[in-house]
């Protein structure tokens, strides 16, 4: 057997730096994904075709193509085709948050549709406009519906973000790659990265479930 976990020791600070980058990257991505996803969801739900049709197409196209392809397209395809420079961190965040926004949009849409129809009617009958009703009545209730699913989306992004190591962002996965090529300790490097990923995703899911329970008990 050729396993030696002590080979990890010199790389531990690097791994934790990678972990921080993974977490930070995921946070930024989920935030942008949300900011992009909300208008897409509202567009999708709009009674106006000029809004709902493009929003629907956006969701279908993003969800129907590989995220790795989207990443390459933004990191390499667009900069070369249009002669713009694209910092890799920005390219990574853009690609993953655009990808995430399509899923987030569907989460938000179903959360909004789960709000009782009578809420819209009551608010409109009181004279609130469609927009005011959305802002003050529907969305605050939809948030409660969508938070668990959004939490899961964050967990997904933490894992999915490992693909950005390919374009050179020094996230957790990339650190494992570096150690691999320098020491040929492939097994140890991957196992340690796996443990760190798992600790983050597992505690996130656990924490989210706790939060959810607390909300439920408040109802």
């Amino acid at each position: 057997m050729n396993i030696d976990f002590s080979s990890l020791l010199p790389y531990i600070p690097l791994f934790f730096k990678g972990l921080l980058i993974t977490i930070g990257f995921s946070l930024v991505t989920v935030l942008f994904g949300l900011l992009l996803g909300l208008p897409v969801a509202l567009g999708r739900l709009s009674p106006k075709k000029v809004l709902s049709a493009p929003a629907g197409a956006y969701i279908e196209i993003i969800r129907g193509t590989p995220s790795l392809l989207q990443l390459y397209l933004i990191a390499y395809g667009i900069p070369i085709a249009f002669g713009v420079s694209m910092p890799i961190f920005l390219a990574g965040v853009l690609a993953l948050s655009i990808n995430s926004s399509a899923y987030v949009a569907e989460i938000i849409r179903s959360g909004i549709q789960a709000v009782d129809k009578g809420q819209m009617e009551a608010a409109r009958s009181l004279g609130l406009s469609y927009g005011q009703t959305m802002r003050k009545v529907i969305i605050p209730q939809a948030i409660k519906n969508v938070l668990p699913a959004l939490g899961n989306e964050f967990v997904t992004i933490v894992k999915e973000s490992s693909i950005v190591s390919i374009i050179g962002i020094s996230d957790l996965m990339r650190v494992a790659d570096i150690m691999k090529s320098q020491t040929f300790r492939i097994f140890e490097a991957l196992i340690f990265a796996a443990v760190l990923y798992f600790v983050v995703t597992f505690s996130l899911s656990k924490g989210l479930r706790k939060l959810e329970k607390r909300w439920k008990s408040h109802e």
Binding site: R124, L126, E219
Partner: peptide
């Protein structure tokens, strides 16, 4: 919207806003 706000409506299923207190339901 203006005319609707001039006509109060009460529904079979109440349709109070569950995320707001009674007072906030009334002042929104």
């Amino acid at each position: 919207d203006g005319l609707r706000s001039d006509m109060g409506m009460v529904f079979q299923s109440f349709n109070l806003f569950p995320h707001l207190s009674v007072l906030d339901n009334m002042t929104l």
